[in-house]
Amino acid sequence: MALDIPEPEETELNMTPMIDIVFQLIIFFLLSLKFKTIDRRIESMLPKDRGLAPTPTFPEDFLKVKIKAFRRDMKDKNKAYTLLKIDNDANVYKLPQAWKGRLKETPDRIAQYDKIMRSMKTVVQRKMREHGGNPEEVKGEIVAPAPKGGAVPHGDIIQVLNIFLELGMIDVVFEGAATPLTSRERSARAKAGK
């Protein structure tokens, strides 16, 4: 039996809706595309045995190089600066006043900042050598004495930490700001029902 199959006409797929959707997808991915802003990290381990308990005194029999950080002239934003001191040296290192971060600073001021860090590094290195020269046996200590030390910018502390790490001193102690309330004040506050 012969079937009479009609000859297929020229059929065409309507592409328009598909293209619309695909363009929408492209726009979505374009807008949500954000390149990673960080590329580096410094890894560290907090001391496991201590927990929250502060270490009252740093054992004196450890070899260490201590860097103290202070914040000065904080009341005036255009004058505030960080002051750094290594051990008990008479030398103090004054970081540029009203530092606005590397992205916003002039090349001159950035060079000035880096120069201070380099000269600090030579001093730290000299001290480390005086302690025998094995960087892993000499601890770095970063002290930001309360109350004003707590206002030192994070970036300055990281720069100091970086000095220690560049010299291979991987054991670094942070010392400084306590919690806003002591545990006694906290329980007193809880009792008062605030």
Binding site: I38, D39, R40, R41, I42, E43, S44, M45, L46, P47, K48, R50, G51, L52, A69, G101, R102, A144, A146, G149, G150, A151, V152, P153, H154, G155, D156, I157, I158, L161, F174, G176, A177, T179, P180
Partner: peptide, 30 residues
């Protein structure tokens, strides 16, 4: 970079709290 250092210390203390015990820290840097 401009955050006060004590805030960073408080965050570290919060992580090291005996109920949390997170000791692995990473500082994001550029």
């Amino acid at each position: 970079w401009g955050a006060k250092w004590k805030y960073v210390q408080w965050i570290m203390q919060a992580c090291a709290h005996p109920d949390i015990k997170i000791y692995k820290l990473q500082f994001a840097v550029k």
